[in-house]
Write a protein that binds this DNA or RNA. Structure first.
Lengths: 342, 342
DNA sequence: CTGTTAGCGCGTTCAG
DNA sequence: CTGAACGCGCTAACAG
C-alpha cells in the first residue's frame, strides 16, 4: 500500500479511500491511484483489514461428516452463498467426536470468525451452545435445537409421517422403522413422525418394531439388528429406513441375506435417499433431502443475523423431495401421493 | 493480553513467552500467568499473531465440486491432516468455472493463506499456475500437471489398463470407453490406459468406440451418446466407464432403455465406482478411488513444502482399490485379477 | 530471567 | 478535498 501511495504520489489514506470508495476523491487522483494499484499488483491485505475493522469476513463451518452426501451438498450451498458476499468459510470436520468439536470451535473463535454454522455432535451438552451464543452468532444446521435460535433443517416429522402413511395406504399394518441414534434431533423427529402415522391409522406402536435406540452408525450394525427382526415367523410387511444411507444399505443386506425380496416380501421406503437410487432394482422410494438449500438458507440466516444482531431468531424447515420408485410396492411411474405437492 | 499481563503483574512479553513456551520463565511467574489466562478467559488472537509472524496457519482449499464423492473424501483427508497440525483450511468451490477459480484464488491470496491445495478447472491456461507458483506454494490434487511440481493423484493410466485387460481376458474383442472431457488430465490418462490395453492385446483402436471427446459432464449427455453406439447391429460387447459417476449412470440408463442386460449382453467395468455399488443388480465391478488418502498426502506434501521450500517437487500416484462385482461377467465372489495385489 | 519498544498493514480520526 | 499520526494484538530484538 505504501508502494501504491508512493507511485501515485499520494498518502496511504487516499489510497485506502479510493480502493474502498469510502469518501470522495478527485478524478485525477483516483485515476493515478488506480494506475498505481495495477502497476504494483497491489492487493488488499485481508488480515490487516480484519484487524483494523474487527471483522474478518470469514465464518466457521463445523460439520460432523464431510463425506456424507447431505453435508457435502450443504457445504456447496454455503460456499456459494458465502462467496457472493465476499465471505470465506473456514472448515472443520468433527467426525461426530465431541472433543474434535470442542477444539475446532476453539480454533475458529481464535481466528475471529464473524459467525458459526454448526451441526452439533450427538451428546453435546446444552451449556456448550449456550456459552457459544454469548460470544458469537451461531446458526444450527440439520440437527435442530428446541431453544430459540437461528436454525435450518429438514421438516422431518411431517415428512416421515407422510412416508409411513404411504405404506399404510398400501395396506401395511405391521411396519418397522430403523431410526438409529435418537440423540440426534433429526432422528428423534423421524421416530416421532413414524409414531404419529401409526397413531393416526389406529395401529399399535410396538416397541420391538423400532430399531436402533442404541447407536447404529454403520452398515454392519444396521444389518445385524434388522436381520433378527425379519427372520421370525411373524415378520413386519414393511420397513422405513429413517436413519442414514448406511442404515439403508444394512437393511438391504439383511433382507438379501434372508432371501426376502423388495417389495414383494417386504416393502421399503427411505428417508434419506442417496444418489442413483433410481438405478437400483427395484427403484427405491423415498425422500431426497434439500442439502444445498439448507446450506444456502443457513448462510443467509447468519448474514442477516450479523446485520441485525437483535432480530427475532428464526427456524426454517425445508421440505424434502419425494421420489416415487417401486420399493414401496407401487407400479413404475406412479405419481407422488397427495401431501407432496408443495 | 494486556489484561492478563496486568492481572499477573508481568509484561505482555512474558505472557507471550509463557503461552508459546518460547523462552524460560520462572515457575512462579509462569503459574501466575497461567492463572491469569484462566481468570480472564484469554485466547490467542490468531489474526494479530499471523500478522506479526507473517504466517497464518491457514491453507486455501480450491476444489471443483464439493458434491462429488471423491472430492468430499479428499476434503475429509485434508481437514484431518490439517487439524493435527493446527492448520485451518479455507474453502473455495469453483464449480468447474474458470472465473470462480480466478476470484477464489485471489481472495485466498488476499487472506494470506500459507499454501494452496488446488484441483484445476479444465481449460485453465498454463500461465495461471505459473504465476501462482511464484507467489505461493501449491500442491495439485487429482488432476495432475506434466510440469514438475508437488502433486498427488490416482495412478489412472495403469489402473485403467488393468481394468480393460480384465475385459480382454474374459474374451472381449470390441470394447468401448466413455472418457468424458479429455481436457481433464485424469481423463486423458484413463483414455491412454484404455488404448494401451488394446494395443497390448493386439486389438484395433477404433475411434468410434471412444466416447466423449466433447464435454460429457451430465448423466443425460452420457446416455445420449452411449445409446446410438449400442443400438447398431455391430455393437461392442463391453464398455468401460472412465469418466465419473454421472457417466456410469448414463450408461446404465442407455443400456436399460435398449433392453440390454449387464453382463449378458454388455459387460461393464467402472473406473470411478460410487458408494453402495455392491447393492446394484448385478454388483458393479470397478475401482474405488483413494480420495481420503489423496487429500491426506496432498496436505502432507504442502506441509513439507512449507518447511523445505527448496526441496525437489514430488509426484505421488496412489493406487485405486479393485472391487470385483459381477457386471464384468465374472461369477459372484471371484477374486481380484492379478496386478491388484499391491 | 524479565521488561521495553518497534512494527506487521491497514482504516480512521483529526487537523489542515 | 487531502495527509499525518494512531492503534488493532502480537512477537522479536534489545536492554537491563
Amino acid at each position: 500500500m505504501r508502494d501504491v501511495s508512493r507511485v501515485a504520489g499520494v498518502s496511504t489514506s487516499t489510497v485506502s479511500h479510493v480502493v474502498n470508495g469510502t469518501r470522495r476523491v478527485s478524478d485525477e487522483l483516483r485515476q493515478r491511484v488506480l494506475n498505481a494499484v495495477d502497476a504494483v499488483q497491489y492487493r488488499q491485505d485481508a488480515l490487516a483489514r480484519a484487524m483494523r475493522m474487527s471483522r474478518t469476513n470469514t465464518i466457521g463451518l463445523v460439520i460432523s461428516d464431510a463425506g456424507d452426501h447431505v453435508f457435502a451438498d450443504m457445504v456447496r450451498g454455503i460456499e456459494h452463498e458465502a462467496r457472493e458476499h465476499g465471505i470465506t468459510p473456514l472448515l472443520a470436520n468433527t467426525g461426530e467426536e465431541l472433543e474434535r468439536q470442542q477444539t475446532s470451535v476453539r480454533a475458529l473463535l481464535s481466528r475471529r470468525v464473524d459467525g458459526l454454522l454448526l451441526t452439533e455432535v450427538p451428546g453435546t451438552p446444552d451449556e456448550f451452545l449456550d456459552e457459544l451464543l454469548k460470544e458469537i452468532p451461531v446458526v444450527l444446521m440439520d440437527r435442530l435445537s428446541t431453544h430459540g435460535l437461528d436454525q435450518v433443517g429438514t421438516d422431518s416429522t411431517v415428512a416421515t409421517r407422510l412416508l409411513v402413511e404411504h405404506l399404510v395406504e398400501l395396506g401395511h399394518r405391521d411396519i418397522a422403522a430403523l431410526v438409529g441414534d435418537t440423540r440426534v434431533p433429526t432422528l428423534r423427529e423421524r421416530e416421532q413422525g413414524y409414531l404419529e402415522a401409526l397413531e393416526r391409522a389406529g395401529l399399535p406402536a410396538r416397541g420391538d418394531r423400532v430399531l436402533g435406540v442404541d447407536k447404529i452408525t454403520t452398515r454392519a450394525a444396521a444389518r445385524s439388528v434388522v436381520g433378527p427382526l425379519f427372520s421370525g415367523s411373524e415378520r413386519p410387511t414393511a420397513i422405513i429406513s429413517a436413519s442414514h444411507s448406511a442404515g439403508t444399505a444394512g437393511i438391504l443386506d439383511a433382507l438379501r441375506e434372508l432371501g426376502l425380496t423388495v417389495p414383494e416380501d417386504v416393502a421399503l421406503v427411505i428417508f434419506d435417499l442417496f444418489q442413483y437410487s433410481d438405478l437400483f432394482t427395484p427403484k427405491l422410494t423415498g425422500l431426497v433431502q434439500p442439502g444445498y438449500r439448507i446450506g444456502q438458507e443457513a448462510m443467509r440466516l447468519l448474514l442477516s443475523r450479523l446485520e441485525h444482531p437483535d432480530a427475532e431468531p428464526q427456524t426454517i424447515r425445508l421440505r424434502p423431495t419425494f421420489i416415487h420408485g417401486e420399493s414401496c410396492g407401487c407400479p413404475p411411474g406412479t405419481p407422488a401421493p397427495s401431501g407432496w405437492q408443495a
